[in-house]
Simulated assay, not measured.
Amino acid sequence: MEKVKIGVIGLGRLGYKHAENLAFKIPNAELTAVCAMEEDRLEQVKKDWGVPYTYKNFEDMIKNSELDAVLIASPSGLHTDQISKALAAGLHVFSEKPLGTTVEECREAEKAVEKYNDKVFMLGFMRRYDASYKYAKEKIDSGEIGVPILFRAYSQDPERFIEGAIAYAGHSGGQFIDMSVHDIDLARWYLGAEPEEVYAIGGCYAHPEFAQYKDGDNVSALMKFKNGAMAFLFAGRTAPHGYNVETEIIGTKGILRIGSVPQKNMVEILDNSGVRKECSQDFLERFEESYLNEVNEFINCIIEKRKPGVTVYDGTKTTEIAYKCKEAFESGKLTKI
């Protein structure tokens, strides 16, 4: 196989970025088809990028005999069904998170991946492919910080995007499911265990609109893991300064911190406001390289006939834990996982 011919479903912000990476930045991939509801988007990529095939229907796209794989970046509620259909059509599948919007959907995705085990399936937990997060994992695995005992993570969206968050809230599943799944995945990865108890609190401190969905604009959770380790998660929608993802792993011999200041780059600005650093403003800017790296890994797995480190079961487990966080948040009680 000279190049992996791939089709992309979904041309929203992230889907467009994935398609662009496949078209121009991943040498072993060829963007052969795109599928979206937006006619203008389809015409643009066909004209500007020379994409041979465009579709408005996913089932039509996966019938294209030229395709080797698909990348799913459609709305969350469509993922499970599209994963199953693409695998059944003989295609390798990369799907953005979440694996499914319910644990039951995730189980269905598991069955499909198990049934078509000769195909590569990969889920988009891109933080594992960020250079700093990978480096931290190597430090932990080498024992450099001793035994990891506490994982702390902050994930915050900018206040300036709040209208979009409110509009999407009814479909998001809540903060823990929509945003904290990345931190849950990292906690499991770094601590090498599964959580067994969770207590969650939060509220609508600035935007009461989220209350109708039993959600908050800022929420947090404290988890106890089966190996005795702890994890604290905070997810917010009202950061005044920009997109903020901050992670800390405390061990018995040392501490690792990643992104403690969400700086845009290494530049410092000295002006009449003092000395300051600009911050990343969205997830595409902060994790630009990670999104490229994860899809490049997917393509390499197909070519090299191997399976990626992120599995379908990681998707199910993080969804299950996120729902338990939501349950604990809604009940106000310590909840068993």
Rank of each mutant, 00 (worst) to 15 (best):
F94H: 03
K25T: 10
E209K: 03
I26M: 08
H92S: 13
I299T: 05
P148W: 00
V219T: 11
E197T: 07
L67F: 07
S172I: 09
K115D: 09
V8M: 15
D60F: 02
K17W: 15
D157P: 13
D68T: 07
A211V: 12
A231D: 04
A33P: 06
E246Q: 15
L222E: 09
S76H: 14
G228S: 03
Y323D: 14
A235R: 00
I302R: 00
E30W: 10
K85M: 01
I177R: 13
E268R: 06
I299R: 01
K317D: 13
E209W: 04
K3D: 02
M1S: 05
S180Y: 06
I145C: 02
Q212K: 15
E2G: 06
A73E: 10
E248R: 02
L123E: 09
T252E: 02
G251I: 00
W49R: 07
V70P: 09
K326I: 11
G174Y: 11
Y129N: 09
V34S: 07
F329G: 01
D141Y: 04
K137F: 00
D178S: 14
D183A: 13
K119L: 06
N21S: 09
P195T: 04
D271T: 03
M126I: 15
M266Q: 11
F94C: 08
T252A: 00
R160H: 05
T252W: 03
A86H: 13
L11I: 12
E320D: 11
L284D: 02
A187V: 05
R152M: 09
I140E: 01
R127C: 01
F161T: 15
K305W: 15
D271Q: 09
I145M: 00
T32I: 01
A33Y: 02
R41K: 15
Q156F: 03
H79L: 02
A88S: 04
H241W: 14
Y135L: 04
G164I: 09
G173K: 08
A206V: 10
I201E: 08
E289V: 05
T54W: 13
I145V: 07
A239I: 07
D217C: 11
K214S: 12
E320A: 11
I9N: 15
K336R: 12
P27H: 05
